[in-house]
């Protein structure tokens, strides 16, 4: 649409790139879907064309997953941890972001960037001392271990995201609320927060998906299968010895990935705005 007309060759090239990459990038998920519904005998037969159902589709793998594994338990753990991390993140990040956004001058901006940079500190740098901290707190091998530590990722990035939102609120609005009878804190609670719901929702989704995606801390701090999250439980504990239940494994991957992907997609543009560090106006 718009712009100069492209030659048919360029357009063809574009289509090839788009379709090629889409197929390649999405292929593992398609493969998960196929594997989920194939009968075991169909899966483990080198002679069979793996792209089609050589035997009737089956729900056996799903049945196994839900009835005989800890999958639902992991799912529940992830939800609980996710909700708790979201709550902690909001409580810490929303007020801090507002305070920073309203700090005028260079200092506020620099402090904000400083906080943002702490987001770059990776779990693989800290897992060893952090596991000590976790055990000092007496939280090892509980869901609390990750509930307490995950906000180290979510809080810095959320502060950064929310700063952007809060800065976009005209100062006049807050001043008007002060004149109209609110305290500064009242203006924050009754005006700034309601105006920023979409920003806060972005933080909620970001924090929740991070809990589902994180692998290293959960693997390090939690050692019993029943306290795990989906992200670790499925790839580590769904394998018995050397036996991979590929059907159930792929089913679990698919069931977990798709909802997260759908929700994340809705908020994608806002996350990206956070990542571009102001390099895009």
């Amino acid at each position: 649409m718009g712009g100069p007309r492209r030659s048919p060759l360029t357009r063809l090239g574009r289509w090839l790139i788009v379709i090629g990459f889409a197929a390649l990038l999405a292929f593992p998920f398609y493969w998960m879907a196929i594997t989920t519904f194939k009968q075991t005998s169909d899966l483990y037969n080198v002679e069979h064309d793996p792209f089609v159902f050589n035997a009737a589709p089956t729900l056996d793998h799903l049945r196994l997953l839900f009835r005989e594994t800890l999958f639902l338990r992991w799912f529940w753990n992830t939800t609980v941890a996710g909700a708790a991390v979201v709550a902690i993140t909001l409580v810490l990040a929303v007020p801090a972001a507002w305070a920073l956004a309203r700090l005028t001058g260079r200092f506020g901006q620099q402090l904000g960037i400083g906080i943002f940079l702490t987001y770059l500190v990776p779990p693989t740098l800290l897992f060893i001392p952090m596991s000590r901290v976790v055990s000092w707190l007496g939280l090892q091998d509980t869901l609390w271990a990750i509930i307490v530590t995950y906000p180290t990722f979510t809080v810095p990035f959320s502060i950064w995201l929310l700063m952007g939102f809060f800065k976009a609120i005209p100062r006049d609005l807050e001043d008007a609320a002060l004149v109209d009878g609110l305290t500064r804190f009242g203006a924050f609670v009754k005006l700034v927060i309601p105006i920023s719901v979409s920003g806060i929702l972005t933080v909620v989704i970001f924090s929740f998906t991070l809990v589902t995606q994180e692998f290293v801390y959960a693997l390090t701090f939690i050692s019993s299968a029943e306290h795990q999250t989906v992200g670790v439980g499925v790839p580590i504990y769904l394998v018995r010895g050397d036996v991979y239940y590929w059907g159930s494994l792929m089913a679990a991957c698919l069931i977990t990935s798709l909802p997260i992907a759908v929700v994340y997609n809705l908020f994608l543009d806002r996350f990206i705005a956070g990542f571009t560090v102001g390099a895009v106006k």
Partner: peptide, 28 residues
């Protein structure tokens, strides 16, 4: 298309990787 392309990033990487482990399985 955007949704499909984004799947690898938004899905938990440990699950995506296990998918690949199956795709790259030694026998199947």
């Amino acid at each position: 298309v955007r949704f499909l392309i984004l799947l690898p990033w938004v899905a938990p990487i440990s699950l995506g990787a296990i998918g690949w482990k199956w795709i790259l399985d030694s026998i199947y």
